[in-house]
C-alpha cells in the first residue's frame, strides 16, 4: 500500500554517533532527580497508608477479643472496678438515636438548601450560602457542642444534658456536609432532562421532585450516608452536650445518654482497675481499656460499613446518564 520509497540511509557514522550521544540522555543529574522525586511521591502514599493499616489492625486485634453477645447486649449499669460483665448496649442505643435525630434534622435542611443552590440560586444570597456552607464545614466540633449548650441553656437553664442537644450539635456539623454532597449530585443531572420535563408542561417543583431528585436519588443516598458516617464518630460535642451515663436511655428529650465514642473515651480515661484479690473471672485490671477497644471496633465497623454501602449504592443504583 505504502508507495513511499526508502532511500538507503545516507547518514555518516559520525553523524550517527553524535545523534546517539544526544539521544541517550547523558544528563544523569536530571534523571536521578526525576527518579528521586518518583520514589518520594510513591513513598508519600505509602506513608499515608501506614497509619491507616496500623490503625485498623490495632483496633481489630485489640477489640476483637472483647466482642461477645454480652458485650453488645448489656449496659454498664452497676458495673464497678474490674468487673468484665458490662457492655456497650446503652452506648449503641445512644449513638443510633442521636445520629438518627441529627440526620432527621440535617437532611431536609441540607437537601432543600442544595436544591435552592442548584435549581434557584442566583445572586448575592446564593453566593453567601455557598460561601458560608464552606466556612461551616470548618467549624470545630467542640464549638458546635458549645453552641448547642448555649442555645439550650437559654431555654432550659444551665446544666441540662440530653440527647437532643447532642443531635443539634451534630446537625451543625452535618448540614454543610449534606449540602455539599447533595449539590454535587444535583449538578450531575443533565439540563436536557429538566428541559424535556418543562417542554412537557410539568411545573418546576414537580420537575425537581419527579425528575431531578429521582434521577439523583442514588447519589443523594450516598452523600447522606457519608455525612452520617462523618458525624457518627464525633466525640467532643457529645461529651459537652449529652454527658455520660451507665444506663440505657431511649428518650433523647430526657436525661443523659451514652454514645459509642464517648464511651470509648470514658473507659480509656478510667485507666487500670484495682483488683484486691488479684486477677480473676470477676476482676480484670485492664478491663476499661479492653472496653474502649471493643467500642472502638464497633464504631469503626459502623463507619466503614456506612462508607462502603454509600459507595456501592452509588455504583449500583445510579442511572447511566451518558
Amino acid at each position: 500500500m505504502s508507495t513511499a520509497t526508502i532511500p538507503d540511509p545516507s547518514g555518516t557514522t559520525e553523524a550517527t554517533a553524535r545523534t546517539r550521544a544526544a539521544l541517550t540522555g547523558a544528563d544523569g543529574a536530571r534523571r536521578r532527580k526525576d527518579r528521586t522525586m518518583t520514589v518520594l511521591i510513591w513513598s508519600a502514599f505509602v506513608v499515608a497508608m501506614a497509619p491507616l493499616v496500623s490503625l485498623i489492625w490495632t483496633v481489630l486485634s485489640n477489640g476483637a477479643a472483647r466482642i461477645s453477645m454480652d458485650f453488645l447486649s448489656l449496659s454498664m449499669r452497676n458495673i464497678f472496678g474490674g468487673d468484665p460483665s458490662g457492655g456497650i448496649y446503652h452506648a449503641i442505643v445512644g449513638t443510633l438515636i442521636i445520629t438518627a435525630l441529627a440526620t432527621v434534622i440535617s437532611v431536609p435542611v441540607g437537601l432543600l438548601a442544595a436544591i435552592y443552590l442548584v435549581e434557584y440560586g442566583k445572586g448575592v444570597l446564593a453566593r453567601a450560602v455557598t460561601f458560608f456552607v464552606d466556612v461551616m464545614t470548618g467549624i470545630p466540633s467542640i464549638v458546635a457542642g458549645l453552641f448547642a449548650v448555649s442555645l439550650f441553656t437559654l431555654f432550659l437553664g444551665p446544666g441540662v444534658r440530653m440527647g437532643v442537644i447532642g443531635a443539634v450539635a451534630l446537625s451543625v456539623l452535618m448540614i454543610p456536609v449534606v449540602v455539599r454532597s447533595c449539590e454535587e449530585m444535583l449538578k450531575l443531572v443533565p439540563n436536557e432532562l429538566r428541559e424535556a420535563s418543562y417542554a412537557l408542561g410539568v411545573p418546576k417543583w414537580l420537575t425537581i421532585v419527579k425528575v431531578v431528585l429521582r434521577t439523583s436519588v442514588a447519589g443523594l443516598t450516598t452523600g447522606i450516608l457519608l455525612a452520617v458516617a462523618r458525624v457518627i464518630g464525633e466525640t467532643a460535642p457529645l461529651l459537652v452536650t449529652v454527658g455520660v451515663t451507665d444506663s440505657i436511655n431511649f428518650d433523647p428529650f430526657e436525661g443523659r445518654m451514652m454514645t459509642l465514642p464517648v464511651f470509648a473515651y470514658r473507659q480509656y480515661s478510667q485507666g487500670q482497675a484495682t483488683c484486691p484479690g488479684g486477677e480473676s473471672a470477676t476482676c480484670v485490671a485492664d478491663i476499661a481499656i479492653q472496653n474502649a477497644w471493643g467500642a472502638a471496633l464497633v464504631l469503626i465497623v459502623l463507619v466503614l460499613a456506612l462508607n462502603l454501602i454509600g459507595r456501592l449504592v452509588n455504583r449500583w443504583f445510579s442511572p447511566k446518564l451518558r
Binding site: P51, L52, G233, T235, A296, L299, I300, N307
Partner: peptide, 20 residues
C-alpha cells in the same frame, strides 16, 4: 483509601496515638 483516613473517628485516633 485516603478518604478513609478522614472517616476514622477522632477518638480512635486518640487510642491509636497513645497506645501505638
Amino acid at each position: 483509601l485516603v478518604d478513609l483516613l478522614a472517616a476514622v473517628p477522632s477518638v480512635i485516633y486518640g487510642l491509636w496515638g497513645i497506645f501505638v
